Simulated assay, not measured.
Amino acid sequence: MVTFIVASASAQPPPSTPPSVAPVEASNAVINLSAAQATLLVGVTAALITLATTALVGRRESRRYRVEFATRQLNELYAPIKLLLAQDAVLANQLKGGSSDGKHLLEDVNSILADAGRLAIAKQIVAINRKISGVLESKSGLCSGPIPVSFSKFLGHYYMLDRAVSGEPFVPNAEFEYFPKQFEQDIDSGYESLRTGVVKGLGPWYRRR
Score class of each variant (00 low, 15 high):
V149S: 05
G145Q: 03
D101L: 12
L77V: 00
L51A: 15
P180K: 03
V109I: 15
S140W: 04
L95D: 04
L142M: 03
A127S: 08
E25G: 05
D186Y: 00
L136D: 03
G58D: 14
E177Y: 05
L51Q: 13
G145W: 04
V42Y: 10
R60A: 14
Y191I: 00
V67K: 03
E168Q: 15
I132Q: 01
D162E: 15
F176W: 09
S133H: 06
A120H: 08
H157M: 01
N129M: 07
K123H: 11
S189K: 11
L142E: 01
S133T: 08
D88L: 13
L91C: 10
K123G: 09
D108N: 14
I49E: 12
G102T: 05
A92Q: 11
I31L: 13
L105A: 14
F176I: 03
S193C: 04
K139Q: 12
K200T: 14
R207G: 10
N173T: 05
P148H: 03
R209N: 09
S189C: 02
T50H: 12
F183N: 02
E25A: 08
V109T: 11
A122C: 13
M160H: 07
K181L: 10
P19S: 09
N173V: 02
V2E: 15
Y178P: 04
K139H: 12
D115H: 10
S138W: 09
L105I: 15
S133W: 05
P80Y: 01
S150T: 05
G97E: 06
I128V: 06
G102D: 07
Y206C: 08
I31Y: 08
F179N: 08
G141E: 02
I132H: 00
N173I: 01
V149K: 04
S152E: 06
F151D: 00
A55S: 15
T45M: 10
E107I: 08
T3K: 14
A35L: 12
N93Q: 08
Y206Q: 10
L51Y: 14
F176L: 01
V21Q: 12
V199G: 03
Y158R: 06
V57E: 12
M1S: 15
G117E: 14
L113D: 11
S133L: 02
A36S: 01
L40V: 14
